[in-house]
């Protein structure tokens, strides 16, 4: 899967960019904060192991200031709340996603609810 094959280098690039300015983003220190071992994080950055579970991905996203949903997607995961939403109405969301998947981004964004302006 393409997303998985680029996950490790992506994480490493983000971490190293931060480590240039903040030693708290060394491999060792970041791994501790994310609840994994330094060797695991090292292997993860080299794509030697599959992306971690949702909890670790969430911690990585938080530490590296990344969007959680994007981080989960790069790790081949879907967040628990989205999964629940889909499973609650599987046919509806399957139809919606298939309908939207080939639409240009601008067209999809038009479906997002806008903030209404009024008289003031």
């Amino acid at each position: 899967m393409q997303q998985c094959s680029t996950f490790g280098p992506h994480i490493r690039a983000l971490r190293e960019a931060k480590a240039k300015r903040d030693p708290a983003f060394s491999l060792r220190q970041l791994s501790v904060r994310c609840g994994v071992t330094p060797s695991y994080l090292s292997r993860l950055e080299r794509d030697d192991v599959a992306p971690p579970g949702e909890e670790v991905l969430r911690r990585l996203a938080g530490e590296l200031d990344q969007d959680v949903d994007v981080m989960l997607a790069m790790g081949g995961k879907i967040s628990t709340d989205l999964r629940k939403a889909i499973l609650a109405r599987p046919q509806l969301f399957a139809d919606v996603i298939r309908t939207l998947r080939d639409m240009p981004q601008e067209a999809v964004l038009r479906l997002v609810r806008e903030v209404r302006d009024g008289d003031w």
Binding site: V115, R116, G118, D119
Partner: peptide, 17 residues
């Protein structure tokens, strides 16, 4: 969204936002 709350004063809802 303001428009989701009909209990808000009418003037507030007219302003939207």
């Amino acid at each position: 969204h303001v428009e989701d709350y009909p209990n808000l004063p009418a003037q507030t809802r007219q302003r939207g936002g």
